[in-house]
Nucleic acid binder design. Sequence first.
DNA 1: ATAGAAAGTCAAGTATATATTACATAAAGA
DNA 2: TCTTTATGTAATATATACTTGACTTTCTAT
Lengths: 68, 68
Amino acid sequence: MSKNLSVKSARAARDMTQKQLADAVGVSRQTINAIEQGEYNPTIRLCRAICRALGKTLDELFWEDDEQ
Amino acid sequence: MSKNLSVKSARAARDMTQKQLADAVGVSRQTINAIEQGEYNPTIRLCRAICRALGKTLDELFWEDDEQ
DNA sequence: ATAGAAAGTCAAGTATATATTACATAAAGA
DNA sequence: TCTTTATGTAATATATACTTGACTTTCTAT
């Protein structure tokens, strides 16, 4: 899996740390880090929570064209 | 979780059975059924595969406004 | 009326998303 | 320097996404 720079930059735009985003969506800091690093494959419910916290859409933060 | 009628109707619009969609995205028929029934919370990778198979976006098939 | 396909459901197993604890490193400020 | 904060990473544990196999129900067609 490739890194998720969209989440990382949307978080930076809101001046939030990984910990703050994690608390806002109710997961651990390591989970946010792993998602940004592309180490796993979050559930759609968590993706929606991240979108709400960052004021973005699913397509903006979680679409990928280059997936087979 | 609530039913996912967007997936169900996009699948119907393409005249695909649950089995055909399951084969197209590489999961079991029961998994597609469970997603349509709202029984679980698929991963984003599977959501993207379903979007590609049905020619829809994440926002069209998997956004939900009424989630806290 | 009957058969066959599609959909819905359930139980038991496997794979993996996520938590917890912990440690290392880099950057920034005092 | 020393301390603090943010980040990256790893090991072990748990919850749950997903599989497999089987059964029932509903729909459509013959």
